[in-house]
């Protein structure tokens, strides 16, 4: 197990199609298959999945996970205003919060959050040419900011997971995620 000593809760919020649900699935796979940790992912799955506000809760632990939903979120990434407003409940006062600086502009009370406001979507489009890579960009910035998985394990997993033709682009996505934060 990497750096996990206790339950760690992550929430990704977005609009459907931004690739954020995939980021959650990738993270769970890496924790389970590369780090021998325990992981669980609860995605939203309503009609809103296609174009509407959507979220995925990812729970990681060094022991079997009992309660399957997020209750005190340690790390929140959100790339759109509506899901930000909808899903910012249950954040810890000292949560690490990453928002897209263009698309989430009304933050309200930021409590004692460690806030990172960065142009995730724009930079992904500009530097990688495809918004779908937001998933790997998000995964990578999660790795860097939280350390819940090891960098090496993330890279190994993405190498196995990415289609050969897109491997290079996915590696660039990892680097972009790291450079943004």
């Amino acid at each position: 197990m990497s750096n996990l000593e206790k339950r760690f809760e992550i929430r990704y919020g977005a609009v459907g199609g931004q690739g954020i649900i995939t980021a959650g699935a990738l993270l769970v796979d890496i924790v389970v298959h590369k780090e021998n940790g325990y992981a669980l992912e609860s995605p939203t799955y309503t009609a809103t999945v296609r174009g509407g506000p959507t979220k995925v809760d990812v729970i990681l632990s060094n022991k079997p996970i009992l309660f399957p939903q997020a209750t005190a979120i340690d790390f929140f990434v959100c790339t759109y205003q509506v899901p930000f407003d909808l899903y910012k409940s249950r954040l810890r006062d000292d949560a690490i919060v990453v928002v897209d600086s263009h698309l989430v502009t009304d933050l309200g009370d930021t409590r004692s959050w460690k806030l990172h406001s960065i142009p995730i979507i724009n930079e992904t489009k500009k530097q990688l040419g495809n918004v779908i890579l937001t998933s790997v960009v998000t995964l990578s910035l999660t790795q860097k900011l939280t350390g819940v998985i090891q960098y090496r394990n993330m890279v190994d997993f993405i190498r196995q997971w990415a289609p050969a033709d897109f491997l290079e682009l996915n590696m660039e996505a990892i680097e972009l995620g790291r450079s943004l934060v």
Partner: peptide, 9 residues
């Protein structure tokens, strides 16, 4: 529904 939809190890 929670158990149905959660992806778990």
């Amino acid at each position: 529904e929670v158990l149905a939809k959660a992806h778990e190890d």
